[in-house]
Design a protein around this nucleic acid. Sequence first.
RNA 1: GCCCUGGUGGUGUAGGGGCUAUCAUGCGGGCCUGUCGAGCCCGCGACUCGGGUUCAAAUCCCGGCCAGGGCGCCA
Length: 437
Amino acid sequence: MTAGKCKRTHYSKEITKELSGEQVTIKGWIHEIRDLGGIIFVLLRDRDGILQITAPSKKVSPELFGEIRELKKESVISIKGTVKESPKAPGGVEIIPQEVELINESKLPLPLDTTEKVRAEIDTRLDSRFLDLRKHNISSIFKIKSRMLHSVRVFLEKNNFIEINTPKLVASATEGGTELFPITYFEREAFLGQSPQLYKQIMMASGFDQVYEIAPIFRAEEHDTLRHLNEAISIDLEAAFCDHEDVMQILEQMIVTAVTDVKEHCRSELETIQVDLQVPTAPFSRIDYDDMVDMVNSKGVAMRHGEDMSRAAEKAMGEINQGYYFITGWPTDIKPFYVMPGQENPEKSCAFDLMYRDLEISSGAMRVHQHDLLVERIKKQGLNPESFKRYLAAFEYGMPPHAGWGVGAERFTMCLTGAQNIRETVLFPRDRRRLTP
RNA sequence: GCCCUGGUGGUGUAGGGGCUAUCAUGCGGGCCUGUCGAGCCCGCGACUCGGGUUCAAAUCCCGGCCAGGGCGCCA
């Protein structure tokens, strides 16, 4: 087995009619073979596209013709040949082969149909994800996700945010709220991090006053829906000397920038998945929690003031609001201890959610920066301040006011790609049942 | 964790007490020099597992496992 005798000279999408007459070497997988007897068409697929190799029996040697006839679907091959302009070929160009090298054969039959004549279920697809990803409509989602993360980084760097890395192995299970995955840390119990929240706040006391982190978060909830994962990527941000309104502006600008950038740089991917991406305009509308409750009730969905949103409430809001919008002024009681209560009315907090239709893609807030108030809030939520000793220490030696948020990278990818199942936006998703591959 | 639905060739499906188990795709073989969802001919390949009812179970009943959908949970 070899990596192929000749070096690749072009990817499939680089083969245009301007190259007519030139000799090229392309490498990839056999998407399909159509053997018509006296002429064989081989469709070769690589990262970027599919290119037709045309072998007429009268134009190639009998040996080569025989070799081509023996090729099987999804085997890896290298083809050296001449570019030929042809109106009859898909895309107007094809390759007339001179040399074909079978680099590695594929086992048959395939666990799923890469040409999509027969659609496979998501469970079947995830079991053979490497094959599933050979389909361009699937790989497009990940090219878009990659571009989104790239533009998020560029945007945040331009705005003087510093990328940090916080630990994912943590000692405390006392943050409250979500279930954590317990692990063994030498002779002690530890947990996988649910969020970098406490660490990015500690960083506010370090002088790094604008930080972000893009990293996995782990939640041991037994949820089983199309929008939850047990391992996800969170885009987290924290900024000092800022309030919630300041970071909401950063957030909406980042969303607009990322959507614009994806629309511009992922044209062919968006076309492949048939998505007409709409760029939102900032500022996004701000809907007060109390008005949101009224809107939900007006849709015939029961919701009392002071409650968190049910799924039905989210759907009702999704019907009323088509694009991105904020929900602000959340009751302090249903938000975490580190959320700053409102100045005028402490019952209403400085927390916000960013929604896209019926999907929550981010939540954030101005944080409590006063040590004593924070201790009080921890106690009020039924938690023990003693377990937050190392966190609280950062608030005793000059903590500036600060605010921040976290965006679910997969949920944002759903907004960009129209994916209905969050599993579509993760290469190897981890959910209630799936731990492999 | 709760509710609903389902599990049939490699993949996607039809059927729903006794069938040679349907169709498509696939795979193997044959024909074919412009295919592009290629076409035509021949062939191959399956009832989730365990128990029960019955002369007879893929089909009905019970349980397990797995999956799909909805909800809950999600600081």
